[in-house]
């Protein structure tokens, strides 16, 4: 009986905490009707394990830009919808609820990617932290004009290869550099994906790590192969 009571009480206290956090962050920044809408949407989002920060940010942004409240309200509902889509897509890809990854997915959708694109990235098996960076990078590539197929192809290769965040974060600049040489966004991303796939198969290309060539002879004899 106590356990049955504890669940609604916990949900209630989470909702109150969400309301309070939202009210605090919006105080003096947005009109009352927008604050009220963000509280409603935010409470529902928190109850479903969705992040509330994108909603708060969008409300503040709209008011700071002098956007009429009705248009801010529309934008907020779109953000809430994108959060829900992102969470569903991540679940379909096998990632349990992670608010940072969901927020990154919301950004990717706002940049032009779809739920199935997010699912495809989640299915690379990357952990939540890597996937969050991958989603943000994929969204940035989409914002640069890279079509979804090439975008997801490139980011997937990097995620599967287990590349660190610092490498993933360089992808937009690398695509821009190729575009500056005359490639289209799609060609740039496809070329980088081919190079990354080849590297994953054969190791780093010549030139990488030039400053540290392998010694001509191993300093120690190779370790014996472990027994099966």
């Amino acid at each position: 009986m106590i356990a049955l009571l504890a669940i609604p009480l916990t949900v209630l206290s989470m909702q109150q905490a969400a309301d309070s956090a939202i009210a605090q962050r919006l105080a003096g920044r947005v009109p009352p009707q927008i604050a009220s809408l963000v509280e409603d949407l935010g409470t529902a989002a928190a109850a479903h394990g969705l992040p509330i920060d994108p909603l708060i940010q969008k409300a503040i942004e709209g008011s700071a830009k002098g956007v009429p409240p009705d248009r801010v309200a529309t934008a907020l509902r779109v953000v809430a919808m994108h959060l829900d889509t992102a969470a569903t897509a991540l679940r379909d890809g096998g990632l349990p609820s992670d608010t940072l990854a969901i927020a990154a997915g919301e950004f990717a959708i706002s940049a032009g990617l779809s739920g199935s694109d997010i699912t495809a990235l989640a299915r690379t098996g990357a952990n939540a932290a890597a996937l969050t960076v991958g989603l943000r990078v994929a969204g940035t590539l989409a914002a640069l004009g890279v079509p979804p197929a090439e975008d997801i192809g490139l980011v997937s290769v990097e995620l599967r290869a287990g590349e660190p965040a610092s490498t993933l974060l360089l992808l937009p600049a690398n695509v821009q550099a190729e575009m500056a040489k005359g490639a289209t966004a799609a060609q740039a991303a496809a070329g980088l994906a081919r190079a990354a796939a080849a590297q994953a198969r054969h190791g780093p290309p010549p030139g990488r790590g030039q400053g540290h060539p392998p010694p001509p002879h191993p300093p120690h004899p190779p370790a014996p192969a472990p027994h099966p």
Partner: peptide
């Protein structure tokens, strides 16, 4: 006048304008 960064990727801001994106 709200102006996106001409050299950076940009996304729709939901209000009919564009936001520039910086991924660090």
């Amino acid at each position: 006048r709200w102006v996106p960064d001409p050299g950076a990727p940009a996304v729709d801001d939901g209000f009919g304008r564009r936001n520039s994106v910086l991924t660090l």
